[in-house]
Design a protein around this nucleic acid. Structure first.
Lengths: 190, 190
DNA sequence: CAGAGATTTCAGAAATTTCTGAAATTCATA
DNA sequence: TATGAATTTCAGAAATTTCTGAAATCTCTG
């Protein structure tokens, strides 16, 4: 590996983090390298930069494409593939969230739903099913929130993040205002 | 493995999911088993239920304790350790978030901060640092939101989740109300 | 403080994952 | 359609992770 020290520590860190997630070291390193490179890189440049085999680069890039985390570019008069990451970090975050949901959350929800359909045959199974129902309800709540929030454009999303827990105070304030502002209780608000 | 079919599919699923995260199959399976068991289990019961070695159970329980995901119980007149999970799923969620932040986010932030302190020596390094600064800013935003929101009690957290993206509409509504309510523009509002 | 039960440790076996080099394939161009 | 550059595939090697059994340690109790 022959990289500026700053880039090298970033790349190595992502390699280690990669193995802590589901993705492996090489995939993490390649992603990190592409992320900080000013220009798209071709496979051989990655081989060179990270000191790994050509075939490993090929497979890892395929993996990254499966995650929708890299973009393919072509230079005119050159038939090699060049790779980058999107430049908008918010977009990267969205992609990451979407892919992890697809791989981790959705399968779990579907296993839970399947189990919850069955008839329990004894007390222990009934208990287990209740626990799974609690877990299912929580995950559904979270994914509903996510599905709703992911539609926001970046500015509003940033705004929402900035608010944080103040949201609940805001909500209480709004309730007060609304209840002051009306003579008789209405029900069609919001 | 000798378990009711419902429990078995849950346990097996968590085993597979476990290996998709950083934790391994056995750890995932043990956690799932404890989660759906009506009573705390001792190590030998886990050995029996999952058909794995005693030492593996011991090491995996230790790992789960490191994640703060299991509780230790003792029965009077029995010196074995018995294990359960907390029964409040929201509490479990909080623990999980906290631990993953500690292991995945915090080290990344600290690597990024360290790199951002350094003086770049060329254009490529300058570019790389800018990219890392963007990433750092995004992660900080997210963790600030998280640090704020995690303080909420469960009811308010549930409320916030229920609101989802409607928060921004609420915010706009509040801005309107505030600006109608005053004669001259003020600047000290929230 | 001896002994029995419970748990942990740890070296190496087993299983799994990652990586490589060589061969195969793809595809634009001559 | 032959050529050659670029890429992919894949069997097996290398590395890593997980798991086990045996021994060590810990800790109550008589």
């Amino acid at each position: 590996m022959n990289l500026p020290p700053i880039v090298q520590s970033f790349v190595l860190h992502f390699g280690e983090m990669g193995s802590r997630w589901g993705i492996n070291r090489t995939v993490g390193q390649i992603y990190a390298l592409l992320y900080v490179s000013p220009e798209p890189l071709c496979a051989d440049e990655i081989v060179e930069a990270l000191g790994i085999s050509r075939s490993n680069v090929s497979m890892s890039l395929r993996e990254l494409q499966g995650w929708n985390l890299v973009l393919l570019k072509h230079l005119p008069g050159d038939r090699r593939d060049f790779f980058t990451t999107p430049d908008d970090v918010w977009q990267i975050l969205r992609t990451l969230a979407e892919e992890r949901k697809k791989r981790e959350i959705d399968p779990t929800l579907s296993v839970l739903r399947e189990i919850l359909m069955q008839q329990p045959t004894g007390d222990d199974e009934r208990f287990a099913q209740e626990r799974m129902a609690e877990m299912h309800a929580l995950i559904e709540r979270l994914t509903n929130w996510y599905d709703d929030v992911k539609q926001l454009d970046t500015d509003r999303l940033a705004m929402l993040l900035g608010l944080g827990s103040k949201v609940t105070k805001l909500l209480e304030a709004k309730d007060r205002i609304v209840s002051i502002g009306r003579r008789k209780p209405a029900n069609g608000e919001q």
